[in-house]
Amino acid sequence: METLKPLLEEHPFLRDLSAEHLDLVVGCAKNVRFDPGKYLFREGQEANEFFIIRDGHVAVEIHSATKGPVIIQTVGAGEILGWSWLIPPYQWHFDARAVEVTRAIALDGKCLRGKCEKDYHLGYELMKRFSHIIEERLAATRLQLLDLYGNGI
């Protein structure tokens, strides 16, 4: 586990986190690898993790009865995947499928939730960082909804 510390320290998502908090996060981290077609998580499952993608990329999808999987968004190297672990009822809303061989650091959300409840400062730091990601995804989703190239917007 100690080997993940330098990686996490360097990552923009955790940059400037105090040494103490970083140690808490590192304590919840492990390396994971997914072959193409494997799911990182599936809709409806309990959400107990989030991922920092190291390489490869993941499709976030919704399954449609008539159209099959529809990709909402892809998440690639350097990006963060998953925030349902933070928000009750801690359940995934989408499927996340590795499009190619994908390596990531998985952070145990259940473990982090416990630490955040005990240490609100850590909770606030993580919340700030996730709200930034949520805001960016929401803005991008709004643009996607406009169907920019379809309707002469």
């Binding site: 990329h57 499709a59 999808e61 999987p69 529809v70 990709i71 892809t74 499009v99 991008a140």
Partner: peptide, 16 residues
């Protein structure tokens, strides 16, 4: 901006 499951590339607006 949108794709089905068989698409191997990126999905998301160009600004991302």
């Amino acid at each position: 901006d949108r794709a089905h499951g068989d698409w191997q590339g990126n999905v998301g607006v160009v600004t991302t």
